[in-house]
Amino acid sequence: MINIKSLSHVYEQGRRIKFPDWEIADMEQWLLLGASGCGKSTLLNIISGLLKPTHGEILINNTNIYDLTARNMDRFRGRHIGIIFQRPHLIRSLNVLDNLELAAVMAGLPIDQERNLLLLKELGIIGLAKRYPDELSQGQLQRVSVARALVNKPDLLIADEPTSSLDDENAAQVIKMLTSQAKDNGAALIIATHDQRVRDHIAKTYLL
């Protein structure tokens, strides 16, 4: 479903990174490994359609995403890609359930409250539905952001260092959640990390 061909990016400072070609099939789960500063986040941003690469192309479901107009690109990302950041980045003025609804609204999709509640239930945070982000712990916030990434039934789930700010227990839970939710929702999964704790859970690796 994802094809990366002869991709390279030149930073503003002039540093150049070349990315090996990469092919990801439907529902495959990959680990994106590499030391920090070697371009993991850059590659994820390129795949998410947030950063236009200097050279090469990236096809998602046979669409060259950088051929889309800015507006269509935003829409495509909203509907097909779920992103989980290192920090949860929830909207602080909205409660947990509203944060999930926001994902649908921003992508221009109808709100499916039943699904949202189901997601919260599966992630074990149904009791927090009406709480505000300021009242939650890091682990809980990260779960909410996983739920938010899944709201629009994406084809691809991207997680950038999802465990770096979590303790062992929470890290294990989040990884388990990501892999099982990706499987249950029929989405491919890419986890970028340099965290050793994640390595055991996923077989396929792409090294930078």
Partner: peptide, 16 residues
């Protein structure tokens, strides 16, 4: 900035 960047990530257009 973070909120707005998140909303962009979730598919909101700049004009929105």
């Amino acid at each position: 900035k973070y909120d707005l960047a998140v909303m962009r990530c979730l598919g909101a257009s700049k004009s929105k």
